[in-house]
Design a protein around this nucleic acid. Sequence first.
DNA 1: TAAATTAGCTTACAGTTGTAAGCTCAAAGT
DNA 2: ACTTTGAGCTTACAACTGTAAGCTAATTTA
Lengths: 202, 202
Amino acid sequence: MSRAEQKERTRQAIINAAFSQLSAEKGFASLSLREVTREAGIAPTSFYRHFADMDELGLTLVDEAGLMLRQLMRQARLRIEKNGSVINTSVQTFMEFVADNSNVFRLLLRERSGTSAAFRAAVAREIQHFSAELAHYLRKQTECSAEQAQLQAEAMVTLVFHTGADALDAPKEQYAQLTRRTVLQLRWLAHGAASYGRKSQA
Amino acid sequence: MSRAEQKERTRQAIINAAFSQLSAEKGFASLSLREVTREAGIAPTSFYRHFADMDELGLTLVDEAGLMLRQLMRQARLRIEKNGSVINTSVQTFMEFVADNSNVFRLLLRERSGTSAAFRAAVAREIQHFSAELAHYLRKQTECSAEQAQLQAEAMVTLVFHTGADALDAPKEQYAQLTRRTVLQLRWLAHGAASYGRKSQA
DNA sequence: TAAATTAGCTTACAGTTGTAAGCTCAAAGT
DNA sequence: ACTTTGAGCTTACAACTGTAAGCTAATTTA
């Protein structure tokens, strides 16, 4: 095995260890370098061969999470093309993502309002991509100004994220209801933006 | 000074010390008992005369924050009666609260998705009160079912909270724009809920 | 007035943390 | 074949954490 190959392998081991230690009870802030390296199977000080400090690891995790979000969008896009209903399919897909990758979603959710400005900015950027894609769809479906579409998309993402957060603490039996409620909220928003915008082109 | 009086005084000193150590860079989780007692002017172990552990202190802080939220609502109510515009006045009032009590708002914002289930529940309860009051107003203004009003209120609170979070990282010059955008989102929501609900009484 | 209570103190300990210094030894470069 | 590089190791240290044990002194109660 080549040297670079091995290095990349332990790097991934560190990342995986970090992700696996995140949970409902443990956020990134309370992760310790020693615990992570212990799980990754290396000595504490070897950590520095890969990351300058825990913050650098954290930003890497956020990037990976953002990547997953983008994959999620791709998946949603496919399902929308088959299904047609943008709102319903999107929310459904997102809820599945939250259920299947709760640790990843929790990371984004927490660091969005966390104690590191760099983390907050990183998460905000990832969510921004997400909203921009949604805004693109909205413009295709309902014709309106780019600014309006963006504002509407941001509101929708905010509502969906919030529902995702609720889902983390709710039993699975409630997912359907949570989804239903959110879909209704989004429909109101879409409906209101369309008709209200027609009256006054703000 | 009576004994109970003095005790209450240092209890408040602890609470104040804790609040003052919260900041953009430091969340409740990274508060240390020793630091808090140092600022409160007592010995570390004296802490236990007032709280069983840091969690108990934290829940107290959340309660105090909820109290401030309720005061905020009362203030908003007064201003609405004079001003008339529910949405605009509410958002305005809320943004002032965030600006003037950013540490308090940050506490709620963070612990809402924090690592302690008890904290999350406590924050959720406070926000629930907030939404319920708003729902009450919505029912008076636009007639609709209680369930619809509640759902609409929750969406509005979610959007306003999110804007508050954005405001924490934004320069004050942007507050006006943030407010304007949010008001627009809320109007869409209100408008959509009214007209969409008329078509299909969900 | 004598006894009981208790807020706050001092001292102490065991555990954890991040990270500096320097070694080993296998892969990569020349 | 010889040298250089560098991933991972061991050891070590200073800083900090929460909290247990027990004392002091002042208020409260009997």
